[in-house]
């Protein structure tokens, strides 16, 4: 299985690569201006988190939009990756009323593939100044936290997922399980 990590400049981009590598996935970190055609043989993409405000500044998210338009394989957007995904499909984002850094409690509302077999409440690690304000109709909310209404999303018809928190960080509980659940989606679509 081949899953590339699109580098949007996050502090934990390399951690996403490490988690995928530990899960025995053929993986590589690539710049976010890598032409889609060069990644034709991948089975999925992870859109990494980014440097501050990157998701709302034109041009800085490179070709992330093109990947979302053209991919027929699963995509998981993390932090800025999720924020960009929602705005790309017509949602809105903006500065969070209460930004979250470090520890938070996640409340799962729906399994939505990613949370299959996981508890309804667990500790996750956050690092964001912005948040998704309005979600486009094609998406549904899967989880929230005390200070953030939209912590996890799923596209209703396409295999596109988003997480505001960081499953790749050691302090996040069930981080590996969430990646494994995403990889199960990838596996199902392959076969």
């Amino acid at each position: 299985m081949k899953v590339y990590v699109i580098d949007n400049g996050g502090q934990w981009t390399h951690r996403e690569w490490r988690v995928l590598k530990y899960l025995k996935v053929d993986t590589k970190i690539v710049p976010n201006n890598t032409p889609f055609e060069e990644m034709k043989d991948v089975d999925a993409l992870v859109l990494s988190g980014g440097s501050p405000s990157i998701a709302s500044e034109a041009g800085r998210m490179g070709l992330n939009g093109e990947y979302l338009d053209k991919a027929d394989f699963p995509i998981l957007g993390i932090c800025a990756g999720m924020q960009f995904t929602s705005t790309h499909f017509g949602g809105t984002m903006g500065p969070a009323l209460r930004p979250e850094y470090g520890k938070a409690t996640l409340h799962v509302e729906k399994d939505g593939d990613l949370f299959d077999g996981l508890p309804r409440e667990f500790t996750v690690w956050e690092s964001h100044n912005d948040e998704v304000k309005d979600l486009p109709d094609e998406f549904e909310i899967l989880a929230h936290s005390e200070n953030c209404r939209i912590e996890a999303i799923r596209h209703r018809t396409r295999p596109i997922y988003g997480l505001q928190f960081h499953p790749e960080v050691e302090n996040t509980e069930h981080g590996y399980d969430i990646f494994k659940n995403f990889l199960k989606v990838v596996e199902r679509r392959k076969s």
Partner: peptide
Amino acid sequence: IAPDWIESGDGVRDTI
């Protein structure tokens, strides 16, 4: 090691 270059920043990453 990895955190040294990650936190030092580069073309896309902020310098922590």
